[in-house]
């Protein structure tokens, strides 16, 4: 068994050169009388991909919401100055049955970020979404198309950081594959920093440079090889769980 990683230890990238893009220290978030995140500390380097895993209710989405300042918290969250964010939410606040087209959404983002139209075309190319798709209401799109639209939306305005909350949820296997590949390419080519919540451990293993495993009792942070072990996963999920990866998944 690998040695335990203390909660406050930063990732292996912390020792690498350069300033962190994000420093979180002693982060505690609670609602009413329930503490969801307690005394969480970690840092993220520019260009890194941090996967956040953990059982339902462990506070993964809450962590993301705190990171963008959408909810009150205790402790400190420090982003490098001038960060631009792209966010793909786990689910929308409303039903998709609105007279809103993909074009409407992308136009809104272009207006707000002041980005050029080309930006939208590049973003669509990256997620492999045809422009004709944008003319239809979002309610008529398939789950996969809509998720790709959300990723394209997040990419407009040249974000420095992408926060992806289960971007492939509700997407079929080939769709998931395409989406994950697109995100991987993006990171490789543009050097964007990615924070990803995912339940798909094989995706995490392949794409993440480090893994933050949130659990009720304690949280772990480290490279996928040390975190995605049967012991760690069983402890975090509270049930025996093993993750079998094949050699070709290795970096």
């Amino acid at each position: 068994m690998s040695p335990e990683i203390p909660q406050h230890l930063t990732t292996e990238q912390a020792s690498a050169k350069g300033e962190s893009i994000l420093e979180v220290s002693h982060l505690t978030v609670g609602f009413d009388h329930t503490v969801v995140l307690q005394d969480l500390s970690f840092s993220v380097k520019p260009g890194a991909s941090l996967a956040v895993i953990g059982p339902n209710g462990a506070g993964k989405t809450v962590l993301f919401r705190a990171l963008i300042g959408a909810i009150p918290y205790q402790g400190t969250i420090r982003w490098a100055p001038g960060m631009r964010f792209g966010y793909v939410p786990q689910k929308l606040d409303i039903e998709r049955d609105l007279p809103v087209t993909g074009k409407d959404l992308l136009r809104a983002k272009l207006t707000i970020t002041g980005a050029r139209r080309d930006d939208a075309f590049h973003a669509l190319e990256r997620v492999d979404l045809r422009e004709e798709m944008l003319a239809q209401p979002i309610g008529d799109m398939s789950g996969g198309q809509f998720q790709r639209l959300l990723v394209a939306f997040a990419l407009i305005g040249k974000p420095d950081v992408l926060l992806l909350d289960e971007p492939a949820a509700g997407v079929d296997a080939p769709g998931q594959e395409a989406l994950t590949a697109a995100i991987g390419r993006l990171q490789h080519e543009v050097g964007v920093t990615v924070l990803l919540i995912s339940h798909d451990l094989s995706v995490v293993y392949r794409y993440a440079s480090s893994v933050l495993c949130l659990a009720r009792k304690r949280s772990y942070l480290g490279p996928p090889q040390t975190i995605l072990t049967p012991e760690r996963l069983s402890e975090a999920y509270g049930t025996p769980l093993s993750f079998h990866f094949h050699e070709d998944y290795g970096p």
Partner: peptide
């Protein structure tokens, strides 16, 4: 403000992350 109103309606996280 229709673009901002639209984004905040669709997802508060997306709106906040977009600086609204």
């Amino acid at each position: 403000q229709r673009d901002r109103l639209l984004l905040s309606l669709i997802s508060s996280e997306v709106a906040i992350a977009s600086g609204i």
